[in-house]
Structures are given as structure tokens and as C-alpha cells.
Design a protein around this nucleic acid. Structure first.
Lengths: 335, 335
DNA sequence: TTTAAAATTGAAAACGTTTACAAAGCATTT
DNA sequence: AAATGCTTTGTAAACGTTTTCAATTTTAAA
């Protein structure tokens, strides 16, 4: 069956196609009778408006571009799902592009989306501090970064308040009676990690908690692999810490593995606290207590921010910083 | 800065815009000298072709629509990631739509994508046997279903061979010495589950394995919740099975939880075998041995299939059925 | 040189909408 | 009944490309 256009409808309804267009767009300058008649015909002929043509003339696509370091990463996929939902609620579709943790690809995807004439681009960045360079590409497309703390940049972004996250974690542990804790997996290059540890340090100081560090000097991304390595090293020659505060849940998973192998029980022998609340963490077998990013809130904030930019809304908040919240499971015990 | 179009380039280069278009499209009917000159100008002026306009005239968008029951589901997100990668390799972008396990929404998303004039639609269906109804919507857009076994339909789809999956599982268990196994979580409505259990039954018969069933009568999706419930019920009054073959990994996770609570050790007291190989399963703490769907292969097959349809390739394979493979971890022991 | 063929370029139509503007219809007021 | 204003409709241009066809230039052949 051939594609039915507005002209076909016009012919059948015996009106000009401008009129059909008006009927469809819910314009007020059209008689009710004709509108209804036309709409009925559209329905009968199963007319579906061509958004490509529409985008052409309106100069907006109602598409949001999303370039993300990974689709599969549990944290990100959850974020993406929420973003899609929120975007749809506002009449936008999502074009999802994977950068596979590759800065170069991230750039290419970005400029590809530019060509697609998406109305705005949301970025879940691969990196630490790198990604700011994208803005040079085109200064005029609304862009917001999600989930990383950007510094020294005037890009728009939404992230959580990592320093209060660090604080919350220590406060929780202290409340459970832990006074000697190991902060594991801080990665020197990362702003996010820097802020988290700062919060932890601050809270430790004021609460009288002794805080030791086992940093992730490797760089690289903070996978469970490096958590495993770091913990293994630590367990070979442990000090008297009663809890480990991991810079991310992924790291914590690795730590758990190392503990299991060593016969160290969680939480009986040592308490583990994570940061992020990835989906894994909620599995009963994992049961990781963690400082949670509220992904739904982040998604909504990001979409709202970008829509504001698209509509040229006055209130131009450069960035939005959400408060994390502690979700308790079974990996920390009272001591 | 204003958007630079082909006309702007033409003006600067002092040629018609047809010529610019030819230079950009790598057409053969253009002088090399002019081509290079034009290309250089495009570069300098940071010209980015408008794919919307291009789509308009070429009547193809180079966009693939994807409607998926969930973005966040670990199995699906992995599939999506692979699909995105494969699509990109062929010059296609992905428009991702979430149906949130809702058949109605699935339909709406489908027809929305129709309006977007995507070149083809890949569907990771919410459901069991429902989804075939989409084809009524428009018979002429290339559509392929992924991951579900469709029956009684002439839709295109790619899935794994569930009956050999069932066989493989039993063969593995038998090789490990298990002769009495419980098949848990089969859901009556699902074709997929039917096939899997058929394979298991067949193999059991020929290998002399006793196969018992604990079905999921609830309907609903096979989450770890129902696995937990089912296992809990079974453990209250267990028979002498030495292994449980779960109809999906998600179920298996729930079974593990139930076992943990009951103090039943895995694999010492009972072996657990899954089906799907979701990301969770590879976590050391889970270590689920499972019959794996090869997601990358499925993704590639799906994209290839849909591109064939788009290009009207002759070889019209209606469907493609991939062989599963067993991935061994730590949840099954020799007996 | 002339001519034919081939290569290169340009003009204009097309893709399916929206929208500014003009025209027409109709009711209200005078 | 004419003038006025408001509502409804139609006409045509625009959005930024690609592509057909014709026109022009170049190259090769005679």
C-alpha cells in the first residue's frame, strides 16, 4: 500500500492541504465541522504524519540525542531508561549512541547527532575530565552532561552532590559504631572521586573516625576487577579497619569477591559500603549497602534542563546538584 | 553562528549547489579538482549536512527503530548495545523506545516510529505470544523480532534454538552425574518456555534422567521474585533431586536466594543451572552456570536481517535460529 | 579542423509538511 | 444595504537536500 500524504487527504476531503494541516495541528483557525470531517478521513485512511517533512519546515525534530559511555552498564542503562521515559512524556524521542568508553567515538557520535539535527544532546560522559572539549564542536546546540562532576567548565550538567555523599557514608558507618575505616578505590584523575573522598575526609575529621586510603593508581575505569585487586592487596596485610567504604559499587563487588576467596565474611568480619547503587547491588546475594544516586531524579533534571534550553527559557540554571541518599542492605553490621 | 547550508558553500565555491551535493556524496560525475576545492571549503566552514533534508528527498532516514520491553533489563541492554554497534557499522542510528513491558505502549511506540519514517524496526517484544499483532499496523515496514520464539506467524525473527538449549542443559547435568533434576519456572503461556522444556524432556528421556516440574502458574514475567517463591515452596517439601534447571537466569537468582535463606548450599547441596546468561550471572558471588544466548550473534543477525529487508535483498530468510552454548561457572557440581 | 563522445556542470523539480498572506464567507453593526 | 470585523479557507513560498535532464565544456577520434 502506498504512503498516504496530506495531499491525498486534501483531495478526498475536498479542501486545500493547508486546511488539513490545520486540522491536524489543532489550530484554532478552522471550523469545527471541517476539522472533525478531516480527522475522520485521516483516521479512515490511516494517515500518519511524516515527521521528517515536519522537522524540515519547523526546524526542530523533537528528538533528543543521547551519547553514553555504555548502554549495558547497569547504572547507565537505568539512567537511560528514565531519560527515555521522561523525554517521551514531553513528546521527544531518543536517539541513543554508544561511545564505548572511547573519547574519540564520543566526539564522532556527538557530531553525528549534530547532523541529525536533534534538538538537544544529553551526554553520559566516558570520562573523567575530558569531555568538556565537545562544546567546541558547536556552541549552539543545547547540551547537558549527566552523572559526572564537571569542573572548570561552563557546560550545563546535572550530578549528585558527591561531597555530601562521602559525608553520608561516613556518618552512617560512625552511627553503626565504626571508627576505623578504609576508603578504597579513589582514582586520582577523577573529579567525582576527589569530591567523594573529600566529603568522607571532612566527616571523618569532625566525627573522630580514622580514615585510611587504598587508592586506585591504575587509572582506567573503576571496574570490579580493580576492586578485586585492591582488596586482595589490602587483605594480604590488613590493618584494623572494621569497614571498607568503596568509591563505587562496582569496586565493592570486586572487594566482596576478594573477601569471599579469603574466607572473610561480610558483614561479620568486615563491613562494606558502596557508592552509586547499581542494580547489581540489590541482588540478595550481594546486598550491598550503598550511597545511592537517585537516577530517576537525575534523568528528570537532565531532561527538564535540556528542554528549558531548547525553549530558551529564561531561568538558565547552569547545573543542578542532587543529594544522594543512603540505602541500607546487609553488607554493614553494627559493631 | 548561523547554520551553514549547501547554498552557502556553493556561493563561496562559486558553483551551483548541485555540484556541492555531488562533491559531498562522492559522486563520480564531478572533476577531481572541484571536488577537492569544495571539500576543503566545507571543512573550513564546518559544514554539516542536514540529514533531515536528505531523508526528505531520499526517502530513507538511515535510522533503525528499536522498541524494547525494557532498556534496563540486563539481558536486553546487552542486546541493545550490540545492536547499536552493529547498526552504526552499517551507517544507521538507533532510535530507542521503551515499551515498559506494556503491550499497548509497544503498539504506540511502533506507530510512532512509523511516523518517524525509520527504515526498519527491531522489536524486543514484551511478550510471550502477543506481539504479532503489530504487523497489522503496517505491512510494509521491515520489522524483525528478537529473542522470542514466535509461532504461527510469518513475521521475521531471530531467536535461539530453545529446544537444543533445553537439551544442552540436561546433557550437561547428566554428564556431571545428575540423574534426578527439577525443571523450575516453566510458564504455560510462553512459547519460549515450552520449547525449552520440550528439549529438556526429550534429552531426559533419551539419557535416562528423571525430570520433575515446578511450573510458574502465575503467568507474569519470570522475575527473580517468582523464582524465589517457587523455590521456597519446593524446599519446604523437597524431593531427591540433585539439580535444578531453571527456565531463566532471573528465576535462578531467586532460587539462589531461597536456598541461601534455607541454609542450602550451592553447589554442595544442590546444583543450579540457568538459561540466558544475563550479566548478573557472571558476578563471582552468583557464578551461575547457564545455557547462554549469544547476544552479539543475535544482534548481528537481527541487524543483518533488517538491512536485507530494507535493501530488498532476494534472500529472504524469514527467521534465523541460533544455537545456544553452555557457559560453565560454579553453581553445578560433579555428583 | 571538425565531429562525436565523454565528462563536467547548472537549472529546476521534487520530497511532505507548515505558515504568512491574501481572499472569501459570514455575521454584526450602522 | 453597505460597511466593518471576524472566522474560515486557499495559494504559494519555504525548509535543505538529491536527482533528472539539459547544457556546456573537455577530450578523443577522424
Amino acid at each position: 500500500m502506498e504512503k498516504v500524504t496530506i495531499k491525498d487527504i486534501a483531495k478526498v476531503a475536498n479542501v486545500s492541504y493547508a486546511t488539513v494541516s490545520r486540522a491536524l495541528s489543532g489550530s484554532s483557525e478552522i471550523g469545527e465541522a471541517t476539522r472533525d470531517r478531516i480527522l475522520k478521513i485521516c483516521d479512515e485512511m490511516k494517515y500518519i504524519p511524516d515527521s521528517v517533512a515536519r522537522s524540515m519546515v519547523k526546524r526542530r525534530t523533537n528528538i533528543l540525542g543521547l551519547v553514553t559511555a555504555s548502554i549495558n552498564n547497569p547504572f547507565m542503562s537505568e539512567l537511560i531508561e528514565e531519560i527515555e521515559i521522561t523525554a517521551r512524556e514531553h513528546g521527544y524521542n531518543l536517539m541513543v549512541c554508544n561511545s564505548s568508553y572511547d573519547v574519540e567515538l564520543e566526539k564522532r557520535q556527538f557530531s553525528l547527532l549534530l547532523g541529525r539535527r536533534v534538538d538537544g544532546i544529553i551526554i553520559i560522559p566516558v570520562g573523567h575530565d575530558t569531555s568538556a572539549s565537545l562544546s567546541q564542536y558547536s556552541s549552539d546546540i543545547p547540551t547537558v552532561y549527566v552523572s559526572e562532576s564537571l569542573q572548570d567548565t561552563n557546560d550545563h550538567y546535572v550530578s549528585i552532590d558527591n561531597v555530601v555523599g562521602g559525608k553520608i557514608g561516613i556518618e552512617y558507618l560512625k552511627a553503626k559504631g565504626h571508627e576505623k575505616v578504609l576508603y578504597l578505590g579513589r582514582r586520582p584523575g577523577s573529579v567525582t572521586h576527589k569530591l567523594r573522598s573529600e566529603g568522607a575526609i571532612e566527616a571523618s575529621a569532625s566525627l573522630g573516625v580514622r580514615l585510611q586510603f587504598q587508592d586506585n593508581e591504575e587509572g582506567g575505569k573503576s571496574s570490579s576487577q580493580v576492586g578485586y585487586q585492591l582488596a586482595k592487596k589490602y587483605f594480604e596485610n590488613p590493618s584494623d579497619n572494621t569497614a571498607i567504604f568503596c568509591a563505587s559499587d562496582a569496586l565493592a563487588i570486586g572487594v566482596m569477591q576478594a573477601a569471599d576467596e579469603k574466607g572473610i565474611r561480610i558483614p561479620e568480619d568486615i563491613s562494606i559500603l558502596g557508592f552509586d547503587n547499581i542494580t547489581f547491588s540489590s541482588l540478595p546475594r550481594i546486598g550491598l549497602t550503598t550511597v545511592a544516586q537517585r537516577k530517576k531524579d537525575m534523568a528528570e533534571a537532565a531532561v527538564k534542563m535540556i528542554l528549558d534550553m531548547i525553549q530558551g527559557s529564561e531561568e538558565d540554571m547552569k547545573n543542578q546538584i542532587l543529594s544522594p541518599v543512603l540505602v541500607e542492605r546487609t553488607s554493614c553490621r553494627e559493631v
